[in-house]
């Protein structure tokens, strides 16, 4: 784990402890993906509406806290106000509002919506003959939603080859409707698919930047709670949980001891 991503996770823990709101394990599974994305795509934190930026949509909107902290890390805004996470006057809700937070392209939360929006945006760029790229991060649990597969079918049918879908394969679906072998499934839907370690920044960056001839899907193998063994071992218990002070100390200790 690179130091930046370790610090992002510490911020997530601190904000979760202060706010009483969580989704820490799912945030930890996508931190490295988000970091690799913003290290690779065309964007300008000082001008979030830059008209040549690539578009990223967090379709699994419950990882909003990770998104906020990563956007702050890349200079979209100061981290300070994010500490009001989920409170009445805060701009930083547990699911993001695009009209309140710079860098958020779509307000998501209900699963299976963001990917459809991303398909529409990719179609818009295709009509405009614009080379801007579109990225959507979806969850494996989210992919129980039929609308995910509708959107994939439409994207491949329309040959939206500037669309990249990153599938957070953190096994959160394992107690419910399981999606076995997602790589083969996405291939069967006509996508160009690679399966990578979703916590390896350099591998992710390489895959994100790689030229594509079809709709691209990156199956990112991740762990819910990655960085804190307590979270990894108890992902369901911690799904929405906020740490107490003593739990926070344990989690920070585990993070500090995680290998770099």
């Amino acid at each position: 784990m690179i130091p930046d991503c370790k610090n992002i996770r510490k911020s997530i823990l601190a904000i979760s402890r202060e706010s009483g709101h969580g989704h820490i394990p799912t945030c930890f599974s996508v931190v490295d993906i988000l970091y690799a994305l913003y290290s690779t795509i065309r964007h300008n934190p000082k001008n979030p509406s830059w008209n040549q930026r690539d578009i990223f949509i967090l379709s699994k909107g419950h990882a909003a806290l990770a998104h906020y902290v990563v956007l702050a890390q890349f200079g979209y805004f100061d981290i300070g106000p994010v500490h009001s996470f989920g409170s009445f006057m805060s701009d930083f809700g547990c699911h993001a509002d695009r009209l309140k937070v710079p860098g958020i392209e779509a307000s998501t939360g209900s699963l299976g919506h963001g990917i459809g929006l991303a398909v529409g945006i990719a179609l818009a760029f295709k009509i405009k003959k614009n080379s801007r790229k579109v990225y959507a991060l979806i969850g494996d649990g989210e992919s129980n939603e039929g609308s995910v597969w509708e959107a994939i079918m439409v994207a491949t049918n329309l040959k939206l080859n500037d669309l990249t879908v990153i599938y957070d394969n953190n096994m959160s679906h394992s107690r419910g409707l399981q999606i076995h072998n997602p790589t083969e499934r996405f291939k069967a839907f006509g996508c160009e698919v690679s399966q990578v370690n979703g916590h390896n920044i350099e591998t992710l960056k390489t895959e994100i930047a790689k030229q594509q001839d079809k709709v691209k899907v990156i199956v990112a193998d991740t762990k819910k709670g990655y960085g804190c063994q307590t979270l990894v071992d108890n992902q369901y218990q911690w799904h929405r949980k906020s740490p107490t002070d003593s739990e926070f100390d344990v989690l920070i200790k585990e993070l500090n001891e995680a290998s770099i």
Partner: peptide
Amino acid sequence: PDRFYNIGICENTLISVGAGLSSQGF
């Protein structure tokens, strides 16, 4: 032809794609 799409029998995505196009000024 570049502004006509028979998206298919998938009403959820039909709306989402419309919204995505709208976000880019269409």
